[in-house]
Design a protein around this nucleic acid. Structure first.
Lengths: 204, 204
DNA sequence: TATCCTACCGACCGATCGGTAGACAGTCAA
DNA sequence: TTGACTGTCTACCGATCGGTCGGTAGGATA
C-alpha cells in the first residue's frame, strides 16, 4: 500500500497472477496456485488481496495503467498524428513479443466482462481506448485522416493484431517452417499498409 | 449416437453447453449447471457424455463442422474466388448476428488450446481455416488476388471481425446512441473495403 | 514495558467440483 | 418370459474451491 516502499510480496503476487490468469483464465487458476507461485501460504495471499477478484482487478489495473501511459507518451513525443499512429502500430507489435501475457488477459477480459459488468465493475481499459481513438479524431480534425469511424477503425486494427497473436501457437502448424520467423514482421508490414490505405489521405 | 434417430437429450445438452461455455468458458460452467439447463440429473448427463471434456469436444466439433460446411457451400455455389471471399465476409457478419455464441467459443478455444494441446487434442477448426485460405491461394493462382500471405491475411480478417464483435457489449458505451444501429453495417462495409484494397488486383 | 501494526502461518469451514455406484422403469428382441 | 440395453434417478465419493479463524513473530511507537 505504501507507495514509497511497496512490499515486494504484493508485487510478486500481481506478477504471478498476470502470468497464470493469462494462461488459464480467472476460473482456471486457484488462489492456492497463486500463493504457491510466490511461496507463501494461501491465507497470506488473502492478507494482501482479500478476495481473488481483488487480485484480478489489481492485475487489470496495472496492465491498463501501463498501456495508457505508453500511448500518452507517444502522443507527447510525436506531434504529428500520422507519426503517432504508426508508432502505435509499432508498439503493438513490439509488446506482443516483449509482454505476451497482455493480449491473452485483455481478450479474456473482453469475453468475461459483459457477465461481470452486472456487478458494477468498471472497464479498466476505457482510458486506453479513448487515448487511441483520440489520435484518430485529432488527425481527422487536421484533415490528415480519412473520415472513418474512429472506434470501428481501432477495434479492427486491434483485432487484426491481437487475434493473430493469440492464434499463432495454434495455427503455426499451417505456416511453412522456413517462413515462420518472418510472420511477425510480415504481419507488422500488413498492419502498416492497412493504416496507410484506410486512414491516410495522402500516399507517400 | 444413432444417426437415424438421435435422442433429443444429447442434442439439447450440446445446445445448452454451446450457450453456457460461450458465456462463461470451460472452467466457469459446471456439469450441474448444464444438467439443470435441460432438466435432467447430473449423472444422466454423464451417461450421454462420460466427461465434461467430451461434451465440450462435441460442442467444438459441431461448430467446426457447421462452419466448414458453410464455407464449402460458398466455394461450390460461386465459381469466382472474388465472389467467394465477399460471400465469406457476408457470412461472417451475418452469423455474428444469428449465432453470437460462435465467436466467443472460438476465441476461448484459441486462448485455451495451447495449454490443452499437450493432451494431443486436435484443433477442431483446422479444416475450416484450410478451406478459407484455399480460397486465397486459388484466387492467387488465377492471378486475381495480390500475393499476400494467405494465412496472415485471413487471420487479420477474422481478427478484425471477431474482436469487434466480442468487444461490442463492452465498448458500446463509446458509440453515440444514434449511430449504434449502424455499427454492424459500417463494420461490414469496412471489411469489404479491406478485402478490396489488400486482396483484389483490379479496382471496380 | 506496553501497545499497536504488518506480514505471515496452519487449521478449519461450508460449498461445490467432476465423477462413480447401484437401483429402477421402459423397450425390444430371442 | 426372459434377458439385454437404454435412459434416468438418488445417494455418495474424495478432492478442491474461495474464504475465515485464531494466533505468532517482529518492528515501530509511546
Amino acid at each position: 500500500m505504501n507507495p514509497l516502499k511497496p512490499p515486494a510480496t504484493a508485487d510478486k503476487l500481481i506478477a504471478i497472477a498476470e502470468s497464470l490468469f493469462a494462461e488459464k483464465g480467472f476460473y482456471g487458476v486457484s488462489i492456492r496456485d497463486l500463493a504457491e507461485g510466490v511461496s507463501i501460504a494461501k491465507s497470506s495471499l488473502l492478507h494482501h488481496f482479500p478476495t481473488k477478484e481483488k487480485l484480478y482487478g489489481a492485475v487489470l489495473k496495472k496492465l491498463a495503467d501501463e498501456m495508457t501511459l505508453e500511448v500518452k507518451e507517444i502522443r507527447e513525443r510525436f506531434p504529428d498524428e500520422t507519426e503517432q499512429i504508426f508508432q502505435f502500430v509499432h508498439l503493438l507489435c513490439h509488446n506482443s513479443e516483449e509482454k505476451p501475457n497482455r493480449e491473452n488477459i485483455i481478450l479474456r477480459e473482453l469475453l468475461d466482462n459483459p457477465k461481470r459488468a452486472e456487478k458494477a465493475r468498471k472497464w479498466f481499459f476505457a482510458d486506453y481506448f479513448r487515448e487511441i481513438t483520440d489520435i484518430i479524431r485529432s488527425g481527422q480534425n487536421k484533415g490528415a485522416f480519412k473520415p472513418v469511424n474512429p472506434e470501428i477503425f481501432i477495434l479492427q486494427l486491434l483485432g487484426a493484431h491481437r487475434y493473430l497473436i493469440i492464434s499463432l501457437p495454434t495455427v503455426k502448424q499451417f505456416f511453412d517452417a522456413a517462413i515462420y520467423n518472418r510472420i511477425l514482421t510480415d504481419h507488422h508490414v500488413e498492419l502498416e499498409i492497412f493504416v496507410r490505405e484506410r486512414l491516410l489521405k495522402t500516399e507517400s
